[in-house]
Amino acid sequence: MFKAEPFVTRIAFVASDRPEAQEARANLASRYGDAARDEAQVIVALGGDGFMLETLHAQIESRTPIYGMNWGTLGFLMNEYSEEGLLERINAAERTVVHPLRMVAADVHGGVHRGLAFNEVSLLRQTRQTAKLRISIDGKVRLSELSCDGALVSTPAGSTAYNLSAHGPIIPLDAQVLALTPISAFRPRRWRGALLRHMAKVKFEILEAEKRPVSAVADNFEVRDVLEVHVSEDRDLALTMLFDAGRSLEERVLAEQFSS
């Protein structure tokens, strides 16, 4: 039997450090009230896409749905800002569930670091010299040596971000695939990346790690001088993002493929 979502009345507002976002937060809190985060039914995030990612990470434990409104430079993951009819917009919003990537990175000093990424895990050269990577998928070496500026694994939700800038494919949210995309590949020059099933386990080995140091970044968490990086989707973690009716994230990803 279908169970309706409860009507949202308790909202917690969070905002980026920008003065305009902080002012908007104060105005909205005065108008709609400002619930404690642990009591809120929805978190309203005021900022840009970077702040939306920060808010997603902050809500991993509570998993409270997040409704973003744009007060930043980019707003692909955000709704348009308006103080009018906020409760009606939230209660009519379309829901998108996102799963993060889990990164486990070992560095040259013996340290092991863990991070989560809702957009992508990227490997980047740290010096003027190209990085050299060996890439394995599900335990099998698929590319014995990639000379490049780096490489990344992107979620569908993140496929229109850094992945697209690196000429990776835009992925529909329900496609259940990940994008493996090289960044400025030098050899093999014609390799353009691969689409992987969403349960694939990706392993990067850094060749000549001391001579050609590489960093690994999971969203905004960076590890320097990595030796080996493992990336896989974490299906046990699921967060909900809310988008205005008719402007769902699925619609935005589709429309992006036809933008000039």
Rank of each mutant, 00 (worst) to 15 (best):
F7D: 14
R95H: 01
A194W: 15
H167D: 13
E20T: 12
E205D: 12
H113Q: 04
K140Y: 09
G111Q: 14
S232W: 10
S248N: 02
V104T: 07
I183Y: 11
V42T: 02
R224N: 06
F118H: 08
T181I: 13
W191P: 08
Q59G: 00
L249D: 07
L86N: 04
S259V: 02
D244Q: 06
E80W: 12
G193C: 11
F13P: 01
R128L: 13
M241V: 05
V98H: 05
E84F: 10
L28K: 04
A185M: 09
L152Y: 07
D149Y: 13
H198M: 13
G47P: 01
D225L: 09
E54H: 06
L207V: 03
A151L: 09
Q126G: 11
E222A: 08
H113T: 00
I60T: 10
R224G: 00
A175R: 13
D34N: 15
T130D: 11
L56T: 02
T160A: 07
E80F: 11
T96F: 00
G72Q: 05
R63W: 01
A4N: 15
M78V: 08
S62K: 04
A200K: 06
S16W: 01
R197P: 05
D149G: 09
Y81G: 03
I206S: 04
L195H: 10
A255N: 10
V253S: 00
K201N: 09
D17I: 03
E222Y: 03
Q126E: 15
F2C: 06
A245P: 00
N91W: 07
R10E: 11
T160Q: 11
V104F: 01
T64S: 01
L237Q: 12
R37L: 14
V8C: 14
T73Q: 12
A151H: 08
A24N: 07
E39M: 12
D236N: 10
L207N: 00
D236W: 03
F51V: 01
E208P: 03
F2S: 14
T127G: 13
D225F: 13
A45Q: 08
A29M: 12
A200Q: 05
F51N: 01
D236Q: 10
H109G: 05
M1S: 15
G47D: 01
N70V: 03
E61T: 02
L180I: 11
L133V: 01
N163R: 14
L28H: 02
S184N: 15
D17E: 14
R114C: 05
D244S: 06
L164Y: 14
E61H: 01
V8E: 11
E88T: 05
R125H: 05
L195C: 14
Q59S: 01
I11L: 10
L237S: 11
S259M: 04
N220S: 08
M199P: 04
V98M: 05
A36E: 12
V14Y: 09
A58S: 09
V223G: 02
K3N: 12
D174Q: 13
R63I: 00
A161W: 10
